[in-house]
Each structure stands twice: as structure tokens, then as C-alpha cells.
Amino acid sequence: MKSIIKVENLSYIYQEGMPFEKHALHNVDLEIEEGDFAALIGHTGSGKSTLIQHFNALVKPTSGKIYIYGVDITSTKADLKQIRRMVGLVFQYPEHQLFEETVYKDIAFGPMNIGFSESEVKDRVYEAIRLVGIGEDKLEKSPFELSGGQKRRVAIAGVLAMKPRVLILDEPTAGLDPAGRDDILSSIRALHEAEKDMTVIFVSHSMEDVAKIAKSVIVMNDGRVFAHGSVAEVFSRGRELSKIGLNVPQITQLVLRLRELGVPLSEDIYTVDAAVEAVKAIIRGDRHA
């Protein structure tokens, strides 16, 4: 598979040269493949938001290079509009950026900026609300009348309507109740399944969420990439992850503890279903032995 985002030796310093300067990213190297569904995790302040803001050129690196589809977006000649159209970024608490009188107009803001015709814009808005599960009856409402979860969907639709090739979401479930979280997560997964060649990257604090929906995981620690690989690969390093303050899902912790007690379970179990199957297998095996 070809890599869609390639980051080379990226470093970023906030307020360089000032007394409060802050080294947010240190020599990050990263490659993300087309069609991947990647989770970006790391504790607070590890540089996740800073990193993803580089992917659509909202932030210029202090040093290093970023290629999107092989195009260097750090060069001064880069076409920013084109990049931002290709790489859609949904910020943390995106509902705070809503501003239009109606939901329709707000979702249409992105496509209008790109310069599509009225009818094309309309098609895109309808498609976007279908993808995020907002009813057509909401289109003429004010976005400020919606519930928190609905607002967030509208904001995500606003980015989806630009039909990005890469969709990046910064903590899409932050501040939602468990039902809201599951709703948003399953819409994101459904989205990824519907648009196979769209690459999705989402930032999360919850290992459970990551285990549920991601294909690959990037772990950030202190401005560096700590681990990058498939969910199974990364979670099998559970103990190292605990050391940097990240808790692998409880079920994985349980499996690791059982292994320590001598139960022959494999290391890459990270969902409850898989654990149940594995334990059942052992019980069956024991009886036979």
C-alpha cells in the first residue's frame, strides 16, 4: 500500500525564542498508509493535537518535512487550499466553531469556500448529514438549538462535506456520555467502511475505544512517537505502555495478569470476546489433557 502521509524528522517549538518556549514535537518520523484507520493516543500534552495540525498545514514545522501523497506541504509553494481540501481536520469540541444561522449553511461553509456550484454544494450537504446521521428536518434549524451530540455531528458533517481523502478527528468523543460516544464511534467506523479509500486518523484517550474500532495505533509520548503498529502489536507491549502512563484496555490488563500467574493466554487479546474465546479454549484443553 502506498503511504498517504509521510512525516520526516518533524520538530515543533511553541513560542520559539520566548521565555516560555515549549518543545512540543521532537524528531517525529511517521508513515500512514492509504485506507488506514489509525488511532493516535498519548497522555495529555504529548503533542497529538500539535502533530495533526501539521497534517493540513495549519501549523508550520520548526524543522522537518511532511508529504501528503508525495507532495511536500511544508514548501512555500504548497497550495494550502488544495491541502486543506484533501485533509479534513475536525478539531476538539468542533461544535464550538458553528456560526451560521442554519445547519444547512454551516455545513455548506466548507464546500462554498472551495467554490462548488449551488447544486453540488446541496448534494454534498445532504450526503454529509446522511453519513453522520442528522435528519433532514434539522437542516433549517439554528445549530445553536441542537443538543451537544447533534452539534458535534453537524460540525463533523461540515468537514465531511468537503469530501477529504484523509479525515482527522481530534478526540471526537470528548465530553460525550457513553451512549453519545458509542454513537459517534460507530458512525466514524461506518464512514470508514462506506468510503474504503478514505484514510481516518482519530485522536483518543480511551484504549477501549481504540481496541473497538482502530486498525492501527500510534502512541505518542512526550513529543515523540513511542510505538506505531497494528492494534495487536501495540497492545502486546502493555507493560511498556503502563510505564508511560497509558492503560491498555482492562481486558488486556486482565490477560497480562493471568499470564503472569501462568495461564497460557496469548499476549494480543484486547477485546472481551477474544478473551472469552481464549479462556474457553483453555478450559476445554485442560479438561482434555
Binding site: Q53, L58, K81, R84, L89, F91, H96, Q97, V159
Partner: peptide, 10 residues
Amino acid sequence: KIMKAQMARG
């Protein structure tokens, strides 16, 4: 933050 978010929408 809002400026960046809107710039991300073109």
C-alpha cells in the same frame, strides 16, 4: 483555535 478550525474548512 477557532481561526484554525475555520481555516481547516477553507
